[in-house]
Design a protein around this nucleic acid. Structure first.
Length: 334
DNA sequence: AACGCGGGGCC
DNA sequence: GGCCCAGCGTT
């Protein structure tokens, strides 16, 4: 049985991650949502800020939407944080401000699926259930040499059955150990089999083809778009428009895609290509200086403090900032 | 079952 | 330049 070796390895080699310090459902939940499709190192600074700003379900339930999105700025998949607020409200209203304590009940909450429910239930409440994420899929597909396409539901189900049959206590450590092994040793490329505590029983190691697993369906090509953004500027302020609540970067702030009415001066920006996972934006940017300031113009410090601007717009924002500052200097010297 | 949804680090 | 990450909700 590999479990004993795995648990021993975990005790020795687990990273000291901040969200492992406390066995509290709230912080486990926050870390799990943040870690969805996101590397741990990328989400750590966000985690600390988030817990400080919203220390519990109640404070999160009362959060301002704009503040929430701002604190998430740059993490991506912004619906995660909106679902977190919905989840917090539901816990406050239905469960006296606590999480329900079983995987089954957790699964019903917004933003919590099979994996996250299993992670919270096992890590925070010691329920003996699985938490099958991408790491665990990879570890098991190699360990049992599963050559089916793991993006297929049927394959995930098959692997989940194997994981369920393997569950060992302490379950909190076991589930995290599987993930940690996937994150540190059984990594996607160039797996470090020499350092693997369960190498002896690993079928792919025996075959010598661990690096060819798991088998994943080809991704379809990205769609390409060529948007032009008009950055309306009045003196030192920039116009920002809240994007539609649906689609890409929903509800975040961005630049206009229409010309303003009376343009005093135009400056073209250096084009920039932003790659999303499923879309490619070849962006053109034109700074338009306007005389009349309507609503929704923000100073650079306001933008920095309050407004959530996705990464796609940061290069144009920086360029615009530079142009504004140069222009100020110019006008002073006159 | 397939698709939409971000961003970044690593090879 | 592609891959893939402590996935979930919608269609």
């Amino acid at each position: 049985m590999f479990q004993e070796e795995l648990l021993r390895w975990y005790k020795q080699n687990a990273r000291k991650l901040v969200f492992r310090q406390k066995k509290e459902a709230y912080s486990i939940w926050v870390s799990e949502i943040m870690a969805q499709q996101t590397r741990i190192e990328a989400m750590l600074p966000y985690f600390e800020r988030f817990i400080e700003r919203y220390p519990n379900l109640k404070s999160l339930a009362q959060a301002e939407d704009d503040d929430l999105v701002k604190i998430w700025q740059g993490l991506g998949y912004y619906n995660r944080v909106r679902n977190m607020k919905r989840c917090a409200i539901q816990c406050v209203e239905q469960f006296q401000g606590q999480f329900p304590k079983t995987k089954k009940e957790l699964c019903k909450l917004p933003g919590i699926g099979e994996y996250t429910a299993g992670a919270i239930a096992s890590i925070a409440f010691d329920e003996k259930v699985s938490a099958v994420d991408g790491n665990v899929i990879r570890v098991f597909s190699r360990f049992y040499h599963i050559t089916d396409d793991v993006s297929q539901m049927s394959t995930k189900k098959k692997i989940t059955e194997l994981v369920n049959a393997s569950l060992t206590e302490p379950i909190s450590d076991y589930n995290q150990a599987l993930m940690e092994l996937g994150a540190l040793v059984c990594i996607p490329k160039n797996p470090r089999c020499a350092a693997c505590p369960i190498q002896k029983e690993c079928q792919s190691y025996a075959y010598g083809d661990a690096d060819s697993l798991p088998v994943l369906a080809k991704k379809k090509p990205r769609r390409v778009e060529n948007p032009t953004f008009y950055i309306w500027v009045c003196q030192d302020k920039i116009h920002l428009k809240k994007r539609s609540q649906k689609g890409l970067l929903a509800g975040l702030f961005g630049f206009d895609e229409t010309l303003p009415e009376a343009v005093e001066e135009k400056r073209s920006l250096e084009p920039y290509t932003h790659i999303f996972s499923h879309v490619e934006w070849h962006m053109k940017g034109i700074v338009c200086f306007v005389k009349e300031k309507s609503e929704d113009f923000y100073s650079l410090s306001q933008i920095h403090d309050k407004v959530s601007i996705p990464s796609a717009f940061q290069p144009f924002l920086k360029q615009t900032e530079k142009i504004i500052k140069e222009r100020e200097k110019c006008q002073k010297s006159l």
